[in-house]
């Protein structure tokens, strides 16, 4: 069976003056139809670049992205139109992702006008009203403008716009981070509900581990443009194999625990990534070999893979003392 989405050895390099920023390096990823995959990592880990490459908003420097087994770089205009119908996006800033001059109904209608041009105006507005109900807004919201809505309501409109064409995969680029905590929960539940109802696959980019864990069955951990670990959500968060996953988990502040030690540090520069393992400069378990050898993404059991030379020693298992 062909996966819905296959990312093969994807690399993206941004030229920045004389320097080259290696945003993604050797990303491998397969996504089945109906699956929900979370992508986590700090700022600068390449999460958003991955989303944009999959959406064909930027061109990969190396490697390929395959949709239903075919390289999207070789798509014809008609293929691309179909891809735009089947693969949609929800962005981070809900207010900025809606045209301030269009009413809610007009914003949601935009994809329909391109992808279902045969619909008459009344048919279209019936579908839009139904979609508005489905995302938890009444059909009365169609006549409103984005500046009249709250952030959470805007995000519901953006989700309605992404779902209206009946996509096979929705890429969500940090869909929660601009929202209040209580609203985040509502939006997560909305995504889960829509996924149950429509069977669409989700690719959720976030740095909120709890929300990803709630929504996604599998998680990919990115650091400096490389895959550190990919595993079922329960395993990745319950028993991480990579020290970086452990660090992300420990970085979540919890009541009753002291704040994280400075040892966690900051992300290394993507302009000059460390030799060998890119994470070694922040890793407590780094040994001499880590500076020389680039750890391959090796299978660890049947469902997970990890890129750490010492993964077998269980270095990431124990929660940090204190």
């Amino acid at each position: 069976m062909t996966a819905l989405l296959n990312v093969r050895n994807l690399g993206v390099v941004y030229p920045d003056g004389g320097r080259r920023l290696r945003a993604l390096d050797g990303i491998e990823l397969a996504l089945e139809a109906g699956e929900a995959l979370g992508i986590v990592g700090e700022s600068g880990s390449g999460k958003s670049t991955l989303a944009r490459a999959i959406l064909k908003l930027i061109a990969p420097t190396t490697g390929a992205i395959e949709w239903l087994g075919r390289d999207i770089a070789a798509f014809t205009a008609a293929d691309l139109t179909r891809l735009r119908r089947d693969l949609t996006v929800v962005f981070q800033d809900p207010v900025a992702s809606l045209d301030p001059r269009l009413s809610v109904a007009d914003s949601i209608a935009e994809p329909l006008i391109v992808h279902a041009p045969a619909l008459t105006a009344p048919q279209r507005s019936r579908r839009i009203d139904a979609m508005l109900e489905q995302v938890g807004l009444g059909s009365g919201y169609g006549a409103r403008y984005p500046h009249e809505l709250s952030g959470g309501q805007c995000q519901r409109v953006a989700i309605a716009r992404a779902m209206i064409t009946g996509p096979k995969l929705v890429v969500c680029d940090e869909p929660f981070s601009a929202l209040d905590v209580s609203v985040q929960a509502q939006i997560v539940n909305l995504f889960a509900e829509l996924r149950r109802e429509t069977g669409t696959a989700l690719l959720v980019i976030s740095h909120n581990l709890a929300l990803v864990r709630h929504l996604c069955s599998r998680v990919m951990v990115l650091y400096l443009g490389r895959v550190m670990e990919i595993a079922p959500a329960e395993d990745a968060f319950g028993a991480p194999l990579h020290p970086y996953t452990r660090l992300l988990l420990d970085a979540v502040p919890r009541l009753g625990h002291p704040p994280l030690a400075l040892e966690a540090g900051e992300s290394a520069s993507p302009f000059e990534p460390p030799s060998g393992c890119v994470f070694r400069t922040r890793c407590r378990h780094a040994i001499g070999r880590c500076a020389v050898e680039r750890p391959p993404l090796a299978a660890a059991g049947s469902t997970r893979a990890v890129a750490c030379l010492r993964a077998g020693e269980g270095v990431a298992r124990a929660a940090r003392a204190g």
Binding site: V89, D93, S97, E110
Partner: peptide, 10 residues
Amino acid sequence: EFIEAAVAAG
């Protein structure tokens, strides 16, 4: 982002 969204909508 709304322009990017329009591009992504095809």
